[in-house]
Amino acid sequence: MIPATEPFVARYKHIVDGQTRYTFKPVIAWGDNGDALVVDTKAGRLEPATHWNDFVDLGEGTSPIVAAIPGGDWKVTYRGEESGTTDSSPLLAWGIRADGTTTPIDVDGSGFSDDPTGDDRFLSLDPPRSATDPQATTDAGPYKDPTDQDDYDQDIA
């Protein structure tokens, strides 16, 4: 057995509520015969990725998520079901990967969470309004541009 030193994943296909979903298992090691080995949580051992009949393929993985922070007031905007419309939802969290990169995490109505940028209907990640709209208000009051010296002088006086 050879430990996996580069991130690879085994991909598995599932049908949930009539929609195709994919789940992934990280490749932990490579068997002496070259098989990708993943954890079988029920058996408590490594098994070839092809052990399950819903196996699709192997792909390059990404650095694992090692922490998460709340999504704050970020929103995810998707193309609506009807032409010319959009839907938005609050971003659930930001996943922090071992290599330092971040990944947005959204959740759908069935409780499935994933990176929304991979959704066919994905349009944009929208920052909190207070950061982009000086007229917006927050619980702390109206947004003030920290570079506006006049506001700063009035607050001190």
Results as ranks from 00 to 15, higher is better:
2 I>Q: 15
3 P>W: 03
3 P>F: 04
6 E>M: 11
7 P>S: 10
7 P>I: 05
8 F>M: 14
11 R>S: 11
14 H>K: 08
14 H>E: 14
16 V>T: 08
16 V>N: 06
18 G>S: 12
20 T>A: 14
26 P>W: 07
29 A>S: 13
29 A>K: 10
32 D>H: 11
43 A>D: 08
44 G>W: 03
48 P>L: 01
52 W>L: 08
56 V>A: 13
59 G>D: 09
63 S>P: 01
64 P>L: 04
66 V>Y: 08
68 A>Q: 15
69 I>Y: 00
69 I>W: 00
71 G>A: 04
71 G>T: 03
72 G>M: 09
76 V>P: 00
76 V>I: 15
77 T>C: 07
77 T>G: 00
77 T>A: 05
79 R>M: 14
80 G>A: 07
80 G>I: 13
81 E>A: 13
83 S>M: 12
87 D>V: 09
94 W>E: 05
96 I>P: 00
97 R>T: 10
98 A>G: 01
99 D>I: 03
99 D>F: 10
103 T>D: 02
107 V>H: 02
108 D>R: 11
112 F>P: 00
113 S>G: 07
121 R>Y: 10
121 R>T: 13
123 L>G: 01
129 R>C: 00
133 D>R: 10
135 Q>R: 14
138 T>P: 03
138 T>G: 14
138 T>R: 09
140 A>M: 10
140 A>G: 08
142 P>G: 06
148 D>P: 01
149 Q>S: 11
151 D>W: 07
154 Q>W: 05
155 D>R: 12
